[in-house]
Design a protein around this nucleic acid. Structure first.
Length: 359
DNA sequence: TCTGGGGTCCTAGGACCC
DNA sequence: TCTGGGGTCCTAGGACCC
């Protein structure tokens, strides 16, 4: 066996939130179902496959979804329920597979290189998950995360596809570049401007022209991706680097007192979260989105670590006041980062500094 | 019918140090 | 007698993903 040969699987729960809601509302079976918030500015979180036939999809404004399909059943998201169900699924997966890298609530990568017959093992897993949780998983298998993920996404729902790198490069050549991980709407637009529309176009694009347009690094990354080269490992544990809380107001807010009140509440939430997780942060940032969608961030790094809501709130308030939003505010957010157990470590004397500054 | 919330990574520029 | 060069830390904005 070739030790360098990698076999990676990507697992994705089909229409996860909508599927959980269908279990809780069996009467909705067969009908279009949309999971979306109830506020005037909420967006679609997940749509069932029936609802997708009306053109409804994730991130679409809920109001637009209602217009597209007034008869759909709309349900407000219940993230606690989804987290619980997600845990059930991935616990089953982790019981049978060693290298599991969760990549969100409803997807994960598995490194199954060491298995003699990975495909039958994965088939069994899909059956086990379906029997025990009534959820359908799509599976893509390939020599890299990129191939595995692209395969599962392209063939879901209920996908079970294995393909090699060259096979993927040939099979997806006719697809829009947007299919590739890391190519979003902006990059797709810039590529279209130089005549690159499909994955195949990108595969054969002139490297010099690409580099002139996108810079050496990004051009290389795009080209590499188009040919489905990817050697990124499956990471089984990742430590969060930041945490944030934000709120979009139902209607834009100009009242300074109301903004400050909201900011303090967000800071309190974050402080609670830090203490629960026993982490402390040095960088505190605020995010302000104005009514014209301008988004501004302001950050300050303290000379000490903190998990105190009062410190986070006071710093966030200073940052907000210094910025003084020039227009009505649509969204307010607070973020903390530079945690104390990062490998960078604490600056010397941070404990003393904290004492001194809090006297 | 306008556009959520929680994250990660990248880039670019300035301050500061040796 | 026109301004080196590299490294690190920090901030701000932006693209992208689920």
């Amino acid at each position: 066996m070739n030790a360098l040969r990698r076999v990676i699987a990507h697992l994705d729960i089909d229409a996860f939130y909508a599927s959980v809601e269908l279990q809780r509302h069996p009467e909705a079976r067969g009908r279009p179902l949309v999971v979306a918030g109830t506020g005037p500015r909420s967006v679609v979180t997940t749509a069932s496959y029936e609802a997708r036939r009306y053109g409804i999809d994730s991130a679409m404004p809920a109001a637009r979804a209602r217009a597209l399909c007034p008869d759909a059943i709309f349900i407000a998201p219940d993230f606690a329920a989804y987290r619980a169900k997600s845990r059930e699924v991935w616990d089953i997966v982790r019981a049978s597979f060693e290298t599991v890298g969760q990549a969100g609530i409803d997807e994960a990568y598995l490194d199954v290189s060491s298995l003699d017959r990975p495909l039958p093992a994965l088939r069994e897993l899909v059956v086990a998950v379906r029997e025990r949780t009534a959820l359908q998983i799509s599976v893509g298998v390939g020599p890299s995360r990129l191939v595995a993920k692209t395969a599962s996404s392209a063939f879901k729902p209920a996908a079970f596809v294995a393909m090699g790198r060259e096979q993927a490069a040939a099979h997806f050549a006719g697809h829009a570049v947007r299919l590739l991980q890391g190519v979003g709407p902006k990059t797709a637009e810039r590529l279209a401007a130089v005549g690159v529309e499909t994955v195949g176009d990108l595969q054969s694009a002139n490297p010099t022209l690409l580099a002139r347009r996108f810079g050496e690094r990004q051009a290389l990354a795009l080209h590499t991706r188009a040919h489905f080269h990817d050697d990124s490992p499956v990471e089984t544990s990742r430590v969060a680097k930041s945490r944030s809380s934000e709120l979009t107001f139902p209607a834009d807010v100009s009242d300074q007192a109301r903004l400050e009140q909201t900011l303090v509440e967000l800071a309190l939430e974050l402080g609670d979260g830090l203490r629960t997780r026993q982490r402390r942060a040095r960088t505190i940032a605020v995010k302000v989105r104005l009514d014209d969608w301008t988004t501004v961030t302001r950050a300050r790094t303290l000379p000490y670590f903190t998990d105190e809501s009062a410190t986070i709130a006071a710093t966030a308030l200073e940052l907000l006041r210094a910025y003084a939003p020039p227009r009505p505010v649509r969204l307010l957010g607070v973020r903390v980062a530079s945690f104390d157990d990062e490998s960078k470590g604490a600056p010397a004397g941070s404990e003393g500094s904290q004492l001194a500054l809090h006297l």
